[in-house]
Design a binder for these strands. Structure first.
Lengths: 230, 230
DNA sequence: AATTGACATCTGTGATCACAGGTGAATATA
DNA sequence: TATATTCACCTGTGATCACAGATGTCAATT
């Protein structure tokens, strides 16, 4: 067989299983599922218009990643985090997301940098508008644009898992603060600007530093909120 | 309801799915599956004495983690790594396994340290005996005893995923070196000793440093072997 | 009136069946 | 003899069916 000069990708086969997983992942990453929410396979299958089969493989996977918990004969639950697990998640987010930002500073193309800057603006716009899901969705898109630019598919997948577990745990606190003290988020916009700036200047060390600072602020917000009204 | 003084664990429900996953994971982590090996769902189901169902959920999961590749209508394959992915895996192993060793130095109980030291001896014994699967199995047990002592379940899972992808890629090189230049591994035993020593002295920085050195040596071995006879 | 008992219902799990699609060997053709 | 073509077989994927177990309701009993 002759070597094709096109070298086309093998054209990844997308199964209903993958599709179901992608949907649930997106729901978790964009804060639309909060701890305590319960689901059932049959209900999800009906919503997606398929049989239970693809849904249950997706749920099995998410349950293995501890992004969902399956109660035997009782349904599927978005788990609440105990303090120890939450602490470990923050630690790993500092480590992996910080590292990914450093790598992004090294590898991002100018087109990617431009796209990242655009997405940053969208986050701030939604944030000042005060709509929760808008800002969560936009923020997710902004962050993952950076992590994709880091050119590390394995690390990207780890970060997805971390955030699927972490985001639901943060949503309530963000909603409260967005309603009561929206000015609190000014610090976020500053950090976002600083991060984009570091990426554009190719300063890997600074990028990681800014990212960790940003995450630490979020952790403080969430810890305060859950400490105040548990 | 009265608070039970026993506070028993909820007794985790173990499904055939989990069992099948554990089996395949173990086969990958202990080097018994090498790149290029092909499997089928029906064959695995027959070996495990179940229907295809539990096996396929386990395989779906492993394929999502890219520890296995499923070729549409053609079977399941243990994937070979391209250079880019291999490099990223090494980078992440330095990061996460190094970090886990540092954490183990902080949190390991004396009982765990004793067990780790025992397992270290077993690795060296099998290594000097020259039997491949013995040393791989013992080494896996030794390393994971350390990572469990680090008290980070999420990080532990990430490390498992990394090694499921990395170990098959290393097996052939280790076999070759074990046969041709067994003295090469003396460096390993020294590193293992140094690692256990660092753990016992609670020196987190040193533990990470030794671990990274150990991994770097393994990477050099594997890269040399695959560069020599690709 | 409070407690206990049974039962109807709903859950995830596992098995079996049906199917589209890809492979490769055997066959027919030039 | 070399090439093209067909076709039987085997694969993963998806749907449907069967089942054990947990829950909560409702009635019978004390």
């Amino acid at each position: 067989m002759a070597e094709s000069p096109l070298a086309l990708e093998p054209l990844a086969r997308v199964t209903l299983n993958d599709l179901a997983y992608a949907r649930l992942k997106h729901a978790l990453l964009s804060g639309r599922l909060e701890p305590g929410t319960t689901l059932t396979l049959r209900e999800l299958a009906a919503q997606l218009g398929t049989s239970m089969m693809p849904v249950r493989e997706a749920v099995t996977r998410l349950s293995a990643e501890q992004a969902l918990t399956v109660l035997p004969n009782r349904g599927i639950k978005v788990p609440a985090l105990d303090a120890g697990t939450a602490a470990e998640l923050w630690r790993l987010r500092f480590l992996l997301e910080g590292d990914a930002c450093a790598e992004a500073a090294r590898h991002a193309s100018t087109a990617e940098l431009a796209r990242i800057a655009t997405l940053r603006d969208a986050v701030e716009a939604h944030g000042r508008g005060g709509d929760l899901y808008g800002v969560l969705e936009a923020n997710s898109a902004f962050q993952f644009a950076i992590y994709e630019a880091a050119r590390g598919p394995v690390a990207l997948q780890f970060i997805e898992v971390l955030r699927m577990k972490s985001v639901p745990h943060c949503t309530a606190a963000i909603r409260g603060m967005l309603r009561e003290r929206p000015a609190y988020f000014d610090e976020c916009w500053v950090n976002h600007d600083a991060l984009v700036d570091a990426l554009m200047r190719r300063d890997a060390v600074l990028a990681r530093e800014v990212k960790v600072r940003d995450l630490r602020a979020l952790q403080a917000l969430v810890d305060d909120a859950s400490g105040a009204q548990p």
